[in-house]
């Protein structure tokens, strides 16, 4: 059954429409990559899918049973002086399933520790987030997103700031999660990674949806060929 259905949705801000005519579905277990140039509205779309932003027209329907969503924002504006340790931030990913229990369960804590281990930030657990490098901060937010993920993971340019090895590790990790049945929606500028790992591609640009379909169909399409030729050079 479709987890997210987008029907002729128009996205934008008070000062204007960013993109319109978005129609696609995301099924359980899909890996959807969203492509498009800067400012085409990818991040806006991700926020709309999460319900953080209303659509201007059209509809985005989410399966009401859909919970356990992880999210990696493209930018997190954290106040310069914010005192928060890496551990505190990663654990906050477990918050959604805490309900009214006022503390984290042993299971949540173990999950947070495991995830930090996986992303190579276990040694930073006690450090202050604001004293970390950009790539380290990105890993912390990834760990937090992974802790929240039970059925779906939305990533807005997840490899930004990561070193090449960490990028490959991350893509492999995402592929593994996807094989385990987690739905992935990922914004990326890396076309090669997109066609390698995605099951579906959504390409937006010029204020509208340019392509939606499977990866194979994308490779055959004219827009896909053109984009791959540029990006794969």
């Amino acid at each position: 059954m479709a987890q997210i259905t987008c029907i002729d949705a128009t996205l934008g801000y008070e000062d204007g429409v960013v993109t319109e005519g978005l129609s696609f579905t995301v099924e359980t277990g899909d890996c959807l990559c969203i492509l498009g140039e800067n400012g085409s509205g990818k991040s806006t779309l991700v926020k709309a899918l999460l319900g953080l932003k209303p659509v201007l027209r059209g509809k985005i329907e989410r399966d009401p049973a859909l919970t356990g969503i992880g999210y990696l924002p493209q930018q997190t504006v954290v106040q310069r002086d914010f005192p928060a340790s890496v551990r505190e931030i990663v654990r906050s990913g477990c918050l959604a399933r805490m309900g009214l229990r006022p503390f984290y369960s042993a299971e949540d804590k173990a999950l947070a520790d495991r995830t930090m281990e996986q992303l190579g930030i276990a040694s930073l657990a006690g450090h202050c987030y604001r004293d970390l490098s950009g790539g380290q901060q990105q890993r912390v937010l990834l760990a937090r997103a992974l802790c929240a993920t039970r059925s779906m993971l939305l990533l807005d340019e997840p490899v930004t700031g990561l070193d090449p090895k960490a990028q490959i590790d991350l893509y492999e990790l995402i592929a593994k999660l996807n094989r385990d049945g987690i739905t992935i929606i990922m914004v990326t500028h890396d076309v090669n990674a997109a066609v390698r790992y995605a099951s579906h591609i959504l390409h937006i640009g010029g204020g509208k949806q340019r392509f939606f379909g499977t990866v194979d169909a994308y490779k055959e399409s004219s827009i896909g060929k053109a984009f791959l030729a540029e990006g794969g050079a």
Binding site: I69, G70, Y71, L95, A96, A148
Partner: peptide, 12 residues
């Protein structure tokens, strides 16, 4: 306090 939109996104 740390990240309001993340909270909303994950259903808090």
């Amino acid at each position: 306090t740390f990240d309001e939109s993340f909270c909303s996104a994950i259903g808090v």
